[in-house]
Design a protein around this nucleic acid. Structure first.
Lengths: 346, 346
DNA sequence: TTGAAAGCGCTAACAA
DNA sequence: TTGTTAGCGCTTTCAA
């Protein structure tokens, strides 16, 4: 069914080799032959067989991204944008993106191993890095090209892109405390996620810098979903001495927190401030609009992918890893008057 | 680097053929040999070379999903859940998922063609079907296995899964009109998306059934994003004779509409009802919680994928296409008292 | 029960 | 400038 080099060879009266090289643009093929071959190839809608080429070249021009989901569902406005960034850059560079879904634990490493040894992929995009990340340990050790979105604990030297979460939270903390909020509660998440730790650290630093005792901060554990933000906040409000500010480690939980406040008729902002982190599209359209830290997630997807492609090609990386500057987006959930200037581009 | 059959053959003293067949479980290989081969294969962590196998079998066990994005960004809480459904089912069936990003137009069909003729994929999941969908026309004509999420205009006979949007909107319309809302505005989207048309039809039917004139309904065009829902609503409110209910064709736009109402101090529900469609996770946590139609999007992803795998394998499909029953989720954005019973499972 | 040989479609070293 | 040959790793006739 599909047109092959062999058929082009027959049609042009040339050998398979010549046809192959004509199409590859080698300059030891006469212009005349090249023209002929190209014409016939176009005519017949020739497409190189990807599998055969990859088998021969030992390069699949495919990168793998394995979504580390817990539970069957995975609904995160964050990742689809990241994915688009990765996908677009991959396409621009002539790479394909192989997507898998695999929860951490059991079969996870096995899947990484298999993707590599089956020759299916040339490298990995690693997302949602963990404190001690077995994926990174293994990829590093095995010398498989990969780029991570996020860091790990020991600070091993591997290529990654990340946003400076500590600094981001310092911005949040400074801002909130500057507005007079002192009783702060932090909505956290499973502790194997390092980025949460960074963010918590940043908040602590801000408190200390303002003469507050970080140890007095209440910390509640969620799982990054709105639901858990809602529940954590509910328990917070039902207890004694509610906070004057709720700092969530991501936007989704912040949204959940706002939901719980609304339900109790507490006005978000004036009564209790709420802040997020990520600046998902939803943040701007929340009620009230959510003060948060912007992560250029689409761009990060592109950067991660580009680094990976470079790594695979063996091109020297200008900088192995990158820590991006966070940007505070003041809206009104923090109780501050909305600033016009910081509204743009949200 | 990677272990091959050849190496297993050397280690076991058998031929490549025998090793291959031992691993494939053929019963013309002695139990003894099978045992030996398997043991050695395990020991050496043998993984079949995927490319070689696919080349030979002319089956890649890979399915393609091409995201038809407009613009560089693609942030839709809806699709990441769908994707997870597809991905999980694919994994269960031993398939891989190749993800591409390609805007409709220009290169779109070329990409589909190339994926097929390069032997990279065995079939397609088609999302966001359009009125006259060139993708479906071509896939159909070329006899390439595919399953769509959504229908097309002419009602060609191809495998798809969809939710009955007309019926869903009839439920919404009945409910709203039952609550006394009569001046209804509809937030629409680019007209090449057929599902929007279905939904609009359903709403019209409901109006007609209640003795209202569908032609009096105001229809505003957005692009499915919150932002556009916000803008459409703003223009609606700035005009004369604002509606008593805003029916958005998806949740995201409904959320944007609510945002615009809030900004003007109009209370969502009591003053102006707002409804959505999709039941994204955000819907439950909006303020007020959004009345909408539930689509089991993760399940749909699984169904679509399973159908596709069946199609590829040549297994007869129990039913080529499926139209799922919509489910009305009454929350409070429509102005109705929240019903306890319909809250579960949201 | 096993193995030799051919071939999937392609690229690349080497000859001519 | 072109063609012959070999081989990527696998499966599958066909003989032995």
């Amino acid at each position: 069914m599909a047109v092959t080099l062999k058929q082009l060879a027959e049609r042009t009266g040339k050998s398979i080799t010549t046809v192959s090289r004509a199409l590859a643009g080698y300059d030891d093929v006469s212009e005349e032959t090249k023209g002929l071959v190209r014409r016939v190839a176009d005519e017949l809608h020739y497409t190189p067989n990807f599998l055969a080429r990859s088998l021969q070249k030992r390069r699949s021009r495919t990168i793998s991204l394995i979504l580390p989901t817990v539970g069957p569902r995975f609904s995160d406005p964050f990742f689809s944008e990241f994915l688009t960034g990765v996908g677009n850059m991959a396409a621009e560079r002539g790479y394909d993106l192989l997507l898998s879904v695999q929860a951490p634990g059991e079969g996870e490493m096995e899947l990484y191993r298999r993707k590599v040894s089956s020759g299916q992929v040339d490298g990995f995009v690693v997302v949602r890095t963990r404190r001690r990340d077995p994926r990174i340990a293994w990829l590093h050790k095995s010398q498989v090209p990969f780029v991570a979105f996020g860091r790990t604990e020991n600070g091993a030297d591997f290529p990654f892109v990340d946003v400076d979460g500590a600094k981001g939270m310092r911005l949040i903390g400074d801002h909130l405390i500057g507005l007079g909020r002192r009783r702060i509660a932090f909505l956290s998440s499973p502790s194997e996620l390092l980025f949460v730790e960074h963010r918590l650290d940043g908040l602590r630093q801000a408190m200390a810098a303002h003469g507050l005792d970080p140890d007095e901060m209440r910390i509640l554990q969620g799982d990054l979903t709105q639901k858990s933000g809602y529940e954590a906040t509910a328990s917070l409000l039902d207890g004694a001495n509610p906070p004057s500010a709720i700092v969530a480690c991501n936007d989704l939980m912040a949204l959940g927190a706002m939901s719980a406040l609304h339900e109790r008729g507490i006005s978000v902002g004036p009564d209790i401030a709420v802040t997020g982190f990520d600046d998902i599209p939803m943040a701007e359209h929340a009620h009230p609009p959510l003060t948060t830290i912007h992560q250029p997630i689409y761009e990060i997807g592109r950067m991660v992918c580009e680094k990976l492609v470079r790594l695979i090609a063996g091109t020297e990386l200008a900088s192995r890893s990158e820590i991006l500057e966070p940007r505070l987006i003041v809206r009104s959930s923090c109780g501050a008057p909305r600033k016009q200037s910081e509204q743009a581009g949200g």
